[in-house]
Amino acid sequence: MTDKPVKDMSFEEAMRELEQVVSQLERGDVALEESIKLYERGAALKAQCEEKLKAAEEKVAAITLDRDGQPTGTTPVETD
């Protein structure tokens, strides 16, 4: 587990850490207080992954195709 703020993580970073969190929780060899912290971190990581996926889906959906299926340009998508 890193100390990097979840909001600053890329999708890949968040997924990697989420997998580590799940693995630790599944092993069940973590003290209760640490399990709670891991669960909270995991929930934040999951939310970050969902947000990044949604943003990527919106960008893909903004691409317009011509009759031949070729990209003709993109429609701007506002991101925060």
Rank of each mutant, 00 (worst) to 15 (best):
A31D: 15
Y39K: 15
T74V: 10
V21R: 00
E26F: 00
P76K: 07
K54I: 14
V21P: 05
A62N: 02
K4C: 12
E13V: 10
Q70E: 14
K46H: 12
R27V: 09
I63H: 09
R16P: 04
V21I: 09
E58L: 15
D68E: 14
E12V: 08
P71I: 12
T75N: 06
Q48G: 07
G42C: 07
S23D: 15
E78C: 00
D8N: 07
K7F: 03
Q48W: 08
F11S: 04
L25K: 00
D68Y: 10
L18S: 04
L38W: 02
A62K: 03
K59C: 08
Q70L: 15
V6L: 04
A14K: 02
M1R: 00
E51I: 11
L32P: 06
K54N: 12
E13N: 02
L38A: 07
A62H: 04
I63W: 06
V6F: 04
A44I: 11
E57I: 07
E50S: 08
L45G: 00
L18E: 02
E17R: 01
L25F: 04
S23Q: 14
E51K: 15
E58M: 12
K37G: 07
E34Q: 12
D68P: 00
T79H: 04
S23Y: 14
R27G: 15
I63E: 05
E12H: 04
L53H: 02
E17Q: 06
P71T: 07
V60H: 01
K59A: 12
A44F: 06
